[in-house]
Write a protein that binds this DNA or RNA. Structure first.
Lengths: 187, 187
DNA sequence: TCTTAAATTTTACAAATGATAAAAAAGGAA
DNA sequence: TTCCTTTTTTATCATTTGTAAAATTTAAGA
């Protein structure tokens, strides 16, 4: 997914505004396993995923929890850093070799105050992330691990192929043993 | 909490922009038990809570789940309606007599395209809701019901007084009986 | 291909949680 | 206050989920 498609999917910008935004972006690549951003650090960039797959996780009390998978077209970022210039809860790691568009947020914020179209782009960006986050919350709260697993498989079949089960179990909030039990019953 | 305080807490607006925004707001009051908005309906307004306490819930398959409590200064709304003009998942009910500021969203969206300050106010509004929603998601995913209960009590002591336990249990994702067990152990 | 390491599944047992029913306590209305 | 309804707690039992360890499968490198 190229940069124009990613930007347009958020909000359609006039040519000159879009050029200003595109100027803030550089392309970067990293190998599998690379830690894109670290929890407890203030992150100065956000990353649109051109190609690849990543996970967000946090090492809370001892245990590591994976709570998000991102792939082509999605944004890898720390909300707390982007929105409040605070340390993020999450680390983000590449689960395969990935190509990313890196966007400096300080420069972006400057454009928000200067260009109403870019300001509306930024509003739309936050709104779309908000809806996605709310959907995750509701799925988490209303559905059993089994239901969420079947939805995940249906909506993202390659994820199961590309990501190891322990991480998916963590994402579903259950142990790997429980996920194995679920998978055994589905056969 | 009055309207100015609520608007300012989101983003500081120049006088004239703020006046335009304030003109879209009317004050409404409803008795305890009133359903402010209904799931499966497109909602045309958002409500800032001046005084009172509300809950969002959804009647998914048979059972009713409470997944949010809002009080003074917070916003009662359907994200799906506000952001995508779609039906919301949630109903919102007043748990006590409440006073609310009602804001028409169609008119607000018009201002977004006309006034860069209001556009940035709208961006900030979405961003702040996003951080709150992410915090709820992370709390849900990383913490046990007991931990979330103690956090809830610590951060919102009057909630426990004002809201019945069955709703809090539903919010925590456990049965009322389990919550009773938790409370008994904390003594 | 063979060997070794990593990932996944299975099993057994223990602990936590849910369902149900019933008792106790609290709150409201007359 | 007294009665009645609602809410909360307690008790029992069945089910689910986690932990730990072993068995199996899959993948990777030499």
């Amino acid at each position: 997914m190229n940069l124009d498609e990613i930007l347009d999917a958020i909000y359609l910008l006039p040519k000159d505004s879009k050029a200003k935004l595109r100027d803030l972006v550089t392309e970067v690549t990293f190998p599998k396993g690379h830690i894109l951003l670290r929890e407890e650090k203030v992150e100065r960039s956000i990353y649109f995923i051109k190609k690849g797959i990543v996970r967000a996780f946090s090492i809370k009390p001892e245990k590591e929890h994976t709570f998000w998978f991102g792939s082509e077209g999605e944004t890898a970022m720390s909300m707390q850093s982007y929105i409040n210039d605070l340390k993020g809860y999450e680390s983000i790691q590449l689960l395969e070799y990935s190509e990313l568009y890196k966007l400096n947020t300080a420069a972006l914020k400057k454009l928000f105050s200067e260009d109403i179209h870019i300001s509306n782009w930024g509003r739309r960006f936050a709104e779309l992330e908000l809806v996605k986050t709310e959907e995750r919350l509701i799925s988490q709260q209303f559905h059993t691990a089994l239901e969420r697993y079947t939805v995940l498989v249906a909506s993202n079949p390659d994820l199961i192929q590309r990501v190891q089960l322990g991480l998916i179990a963590s994402y579903l909030g259950i142990t790997q043993v429980s996920l194995s039990r679920i998978r055994a019953e589905l056969k």
